[in-house]
Design a protein around this nucleic acid. Structure first.
Length: 518
RNA sequence: GCCCCCAUCGUCUAGCGGCCUAGGACACCACCCUUUCAAGGUGGAGACACGGAUUCGAAUUCCGUUGGGGGCACCA
C-alpha cells in the first residue's frame, strides 16, 4: 500500500512524478494499491487548478493511482480538507491523554521568542510556555472562544530513531525536537498530524517521500507511538538537483511536469529518465519499460545521493523512445503535442540542449497554430515529412525547430544575403539557380542528380559544396537540413521549382533594385 | 548557529575485502562516413575528496576532517 500526497500549490512538480513512479512500482510489484491523496491543509496557498493538473500529469505519465479524488476508493475522502473532523478528533484524543496540549501564545509572542533565540545563537524552538497550563484551565479558555492551537508534547531525554530501508537507522535526541503545532487555530491540521492520521486510516504500509522530511520524522514516530499505531515503512528518497546541485525548486520554473511535457518529451522517456537517475538497472541498461522497472526495482538499491537532472541524458533516453514509434504513432504524438500547445494560446519557449548552451527558441502562439494547421492539412504528406531522417529528433519540439520549411504555411523565402552567402555573389547565385532549374529532373536518381549538380559547379568554376549550400538555402531557408535529394523528393517537383524561382526572384530584386522597380 | 543526510570520471552510475593497471551510459575530443546539420562507425581523454585505523590485502569496514545538500513555521 503506497501513496503519493502532493499539496495542490502551483504546477505539479517533477519530484512528485518521481515519488509516484516509485509508489506505482512498489504497488505493482507487491500486488498492492497506490493511492493519491491531496494535502490541502494550507488554505493560504491553494491553487484551484492544481488537482486537475495533478491527475492529468499522473495520467500522462501512465502512473494512475488506484484510489484518490476523482478515482474513488473505500478509504476516502482523499482530500484532506474534507477530513477535518477526523483530525480534530485525533487532536482532542491526544490532548485528553496528555500527549498534546492547547497553546494560546500569540503569533507576536512566538515571533519575539524566535528572534531572541536566533540572536542568542540558539535553535529557534517553542519554549513550552503553555505546557504548564492546567488542563482544566486550558479547556476553559478554549471553550470561552480564545484562539488556540494544539501542540505535540515531546518527551525529554529520549532518543527517537527510525529505520529507513535505504539509509539504515537514524536517531534523534528528543530534546532537540520542537513541540510542533498539530492543529492550527483555523481548525486545520498541520502536515504532521494529517499525514500520520491519514496514512494510518488509509492503511498505507510504505511511505515514499523526499529526503527533506527526514528531520520531521521523529515527530511522526512519536504520534504513531502515542496513538498506539504501527508506523509504516518510511523511505526517504534523494532530492533531485539542478545543475548547480541545489534542490530543484518550484520557483526555478522549469521543474514542473508540464514543462517537460511542453518541451516535447514523451511520457515514457521522462519516466525512464527519472527511474534511471535514482536507480541502476542490474544489467546496467539505460532503456527499459515501466514493467521491467517495477519488477526489478528494490528500495534498497536506490541511490542515496541527490542526482542532477541531466538534460543531455534525458534527451538521449527520449530519443530512443522517439525512434521506436511507428510513422503513424509519431505523427499522432506530434499532432497531439502541437494541438495541446496551440490550444494554450501562448508562446512556448523551447530549450535547445547541447552545443550552444542555453539556447532558447520561442515559438509564438501564431506559429503553433500554423503548425497545427500544417500537420493536419495533409496527414499523408506530414507523415512522409516526419520520416525524413527522424533520428535527428530528440524530442517532439525538435520537429518544430527544424522542419518548418517542409510546409508552405511555415516556409519563408530566404533573405538574398543568405542565398548569396555561399557563392559570394548574388548575381552568380541567381545565374546558377536558374541553370539548376533548367537542368533539374525530378525523376533522376540520387546519383544522377548529384552528378548533375557537380557538373554544373565544375562548369561554373565554383565549389560543389557552395552550390549545394545555395540550393539548400533556396529550398529550405536554412543551412542545416536533411540531405537535399530527400527533401526534393518529399517537396515534389512543383514546389521545388517554385522555391528555386522565388529565390532567383529575391536575388534579382536585390541585385538590380532600381531597374526592376521601373 | 544547531540537527540530519550524502560523498567513484563533467553528469548518472557499476563496484558490496582480493576478479579493479576501477566497468558502462550521457556529455566531451579526434578520425571515418558525408552536399550542410544530424544519425552511425572507430578511437581517445576523464573519477575512488583528504587523513588515520582494521586487514596479508581496501573504492569497498571503522573513526575523523573537508566538501555538498536538506531541515530547524499556525508551509508542505
Amino acid at each position: 500500500m503506497t501513496r503519493v500526497a502532493p499539496s495542490p500549490t502551483g504546477r505539479p512538480h517533477i519530484g512528485t512524478a518521481l515519488q509516484a513512479l516509485i509508489d506505482r512500482a512498489i504497488a505493482q510489484r507487491t500486488g498492492g494499491i497506490f493511492i493519491l491523496r491531496i494535502e490541502d491543509t494550507d488554505q493560504k496557498r491553494l491553487d484551484p487548478l492544481a488537482l486537475k493538473e495533478i491527475l492529468e500529469a499522473l495520467e500522462w505519465l501512465g502512473l494512475r493511482p488506484d484510489e484518490g479524488p476523482g478515482i474513488g476508493g473505500a478509504y476516502g475522502p482523499y482530500v484532506q480538507s474534507e477530513r477535518l473532523p477526523l483530525y480534530r478528533a485525533a487532536a482532542e484524543w491526544l490532548v485528553e491523554h496528555g500527549f498534546a496540549y492547547y497553546c494560546f501564545c500569540s503569533a507576536e509572542r512566538l515571533e519575539a521568542l524566535r528572534k531572541e533565540q536566533v540572536a542568542a545563537g540558539q535553535t529557534p524552538m517553542y519554549d513550552r510556555h503553555c505546557q504548564s497550563l492546567a488542563p482544566s484551565q486550558a479547556r476553559q479558555r478554549k471553550e470561552a472562544g480564545e484562539p488556540c492551537v494544539v501542540r505535540l508534547r515531546v518527551p525529554r531525554g529520549r532518543v527517537i530513531s527510525l529505520t529507513d530501508p535505504l539509509r539504515g537507522e537514524i536517531s534523534f535526541q528528543s530534546d532537540l525536537i520542537d513541540d510542533q503545532v498539530l492543529l492550527k487555530s483555523d481548525g486545520f491540521p498541520t502536515y504532521h498530524l494529517a499525514v500520520v492520521v491519514d496514512d494510518h486510516f488509509m492503511r498505507v504500509t510504505t511511505v515514499v517521500r523526499g529526503e527533506e522530511w527526514i528531520s520531521s520524522t521523529p515527530k511522526h514516530l512519536l504520534l504513531y507511538e502515542y496513538f498506539g499505531w504501527q508506523a509504516p515503512r518510511l523511505v526517504h528518497t534523494p532530492l533531485l538537483r539542478d545543475s548547480s546541485r541545489r534542490k530543484l525548486s518550484k520557483r526555478a520554473g522549469d521543474t514542473s511536469i508540464e514543462w517537460f511535457r511542453s518541451q516535447g518529451y514523451l511520457p515514457e522517456g521522462l519516466r525512464n529518465f527519472l527511474s534511471r537517475i535514482i536507480w541502476a538497472h542490474p544489467q546496467e541498461k539505460d532503456i527499459y519499460s515501466f514493467s521491467e522497472f517495477a519488477s526489478l526495482f528494490r528500495i534498497e538499491d536506490m541511490s542515496r545521493a541527490g542526482p542532477v537532472v541531466d538534460r543531455d541524458l534525458l534527451e538521449h533516453i527520449n530519443s530512443q523512445y522517439l525512434r521506436e514509434l511507428s510513422p503513424e504513432e509519431f505523427y499522432q504524438e506530434l499532432l497531439g503535442y502541437v494541438e495541446r500547445l496551440a490550444a494554450r494560446g501562448e508562446p512556448v519557449a523551447i530549450e535547445v540542449v547541447g552545443k550552444e548552451e542555453q539556447a532558447v527558441t520561442v515559438l509564438s502562439a501564431e506559429e503553433l497554430r500554423r503548425w497545427q494547421a500544417a500537420l493536419a492539412r495533409d496527414p499523408a504528406y506530414s507523415k512522409r515529412v516526419l520520416q525524413v531522417e527522424r533520428e535527428r529528433f530528440r524530442k517532439l519540439a525538435d520537429v518544430l525547430l527544424q522542419y518548418g520549411f517542409f510546409f508552405a504555411e511555415l516556409f519563408q523565402v530566404p533573405e538574398p544575403a543568405l542565398l548569396a552567402k555561399h557563392l559570394g555573389s548574388g548575381e552568380l547565385a541567381a545565374r546558377l539557380l536558374q541553370e539548376y532549374g533548367r537542368r533539374y529532373d525530378h525523376g533522376a536518381t540520387q546519383e544522377e542528380w548529384e552528378a548533375m549538380v557537380r557538373g554544373l559547379a565544375e562548369e561554373a568554376g565554383v565549389k560543389a559544396r557552395a552550390l549545394f549550400m545555395t540550393i539548400r538555402v533556396a529550398l529550405t531557408g536554412a543551412e542545416r537540413t536533411p540531405p537535399l535529394y530527400e527533401i526534393q523528393q518529399v517537396l515534389g517537383e512543383q514546389e521545388v521549382r517554385r522555391r528555386v524561382a522565388s529565390a532567383i526572384e529575391a536575388l534579382l530584386a536585390e541585385t538590380l533594385p532600381e531597374e526592376n522597380k521601373a
